[in-house]
Computed example of a mutant assay.
Amino acid sequence: MPKTLTTTDALAEFCARAARCPYVTVDTEFLRERTYFAQLCLVQLALPGTDDSDAVLVDPLADDMSLEPLFELFRNRDVVKVFHAARQDLEIFHVDGDVLPEPLFDTQVAAMVCGFGEQVGYETLVRKIAKASLDKSSRFTDWSRRPLTDAQKTYALADVTHLRQIYEYLAAELERTGRRAWVEEELQTLTNREAYVVEPDEAWKRLKTRTNSGKFLAILRELAKYREETAQARNVPRNRIMKDDVLMELASTKPKSVQDLSKSRLLQRDGRKGDAAEALLAAVKRGLETRPEDMPKAPAGRDKSQMNPALADLLRVLLKAKAEEAGVAQKLIASSADLDDIACGTRDGLWAHGWRGQVFGEDALRLCEGEIALSAKGQQVKIIPV
């Protein structure tokens, strides 16, 4: 059975060995269904090689366990930290340890650059690269319960042992194609600390609204701020405090008294009395008293009346052709919304810079300016200078 580390000293000993290696593979198991912040339940680590004795499970719930040795390893820039689909793992480590692993390698991002498709799953890479299969029966088990079953331990360890072979294959492929810089460019977003900080003042931007009314948005901002702060303080999911449609209703009806709150169709009983009711009414009041110049503005959307549908279709053909030529997932280069923006007249975006600009953006702009045309020959699309 996999070795489980339950003391800080044991973790420190393993991390000291890892510090002498070129890389370490990392994964986590956590729960988040009942909390605002994820509860870290298990960390899996593996060193280079094929020996499973070089792979361990770390129990962060053990009484004599501090993850500081692991955080110190994450700060060691001589060791590459390898994850698959790292974003949620990184958020946990940022919240729990105020640390982001660097240097970082994400095999999902690398796989998209290497032509494995859109947001390819770990199981697919295990099958295609490691030529193995995974038993996923323990995937949705309760990782906070102790003791862990043998099946849970085996499942968890497989998430880092196969990752070694996947990493080495993808790293070699990136060197062969000269695209390592492409992946490093993508990983800058994952290692940006701002991506893992939720500011209550900005929480309203998560909500989809159908109005540009400054007063409505001002009230919505205050209500969303209250919900976010309360959810964080209680460590419960924000929808346990109030669902999105309740925020929308209250921003629309603008209640000014407990009696007004009682008329809400969606607000639950707990929100209609006591401290919760007072907090909601205070939030609405702050929104109503917001000065016009301080009212939030809805994100500017594209003016669809300016869209050239024919150009949008041509851009999709161009993107498909360029993605296939480069062997890169289309969505990693540009989204469908990006193409519509370009067809509406936008001439700048992520798609226009770095490796994306080289692969697609430059030709997209040339297509918009009428400097190139597209021609189909058999299954191929060719670019023709005009």
Results as ranks from 00 to 15, higher is better:
Asp27Thr: 04
Thr28His: 03
Glu29Asp: 13
Phe30Glu: 09
Arg32Thr: 12
Arg32Lys: 15
Thr35Ala: 06
Thr35Cys: 09
Leu40Arg: 12
Leu40Gln: 12
Cys41Val: 06
Ala46Thr: 00
Ala46Cys: 11
Leu47Glu: 01
Leu47Tyr: 03
Pro48His: 06
Pro48Gln: 09
Gly49Lys: 12
Asp52Val: 13
Asp52Leu: 12
Asp52Phe: 07
Asp54Ala: 14
Ala55Gln: 13
Leu57Asn: 06
Pro60Trp: 05
Pro60Leu: 08
Leu61Val: 09
Ala62Ser: 14
Asp63Val: 13
Asp63Tyr: 03
Asp64Gly: 05
Asp64Ala: 15
Met65Asp: 10
Leu67Cys: 07
Pro69Leu: 07
Leu70Tyr: 14
Leu73Ile: 08
Arg75Trp: 02
Arg75Ser: 08
Asn76Tyr: 05
Arg77Ile: 05
Arg77Val: 09
Asp78Phe: 06
Asp78Met: 08
Val79Lys: 09
Val80Tyr: 05
Val80Lys: 10
Val82Cys: 03
Phe83Cys: 05
Ala85Leu: 09
Gln88Tyr: 07
Asp89His: 01
Glu91Ser: 04
Ile92Gln: 06
Ile92Pro: 02
His94Glu: 08
His94Lys: 12
Asp98Met: 10
Val99Asn: 03
Pro101Lys: 04
Leu104Ala: 02
Asp106Gly: 01
Gln108Thr: 02
Ala110Cys: 06
Ala110Trp: 04
Ala111Ile: 11
Met112Arg: 13
Cys114His: 03
Gly115Trp: 08
Phe116Trp: 13
Phe116Lys: 08
Gln119Met: 13
Val120Asp: 09
Val120Asn: 02
Tyr122Leu: 02
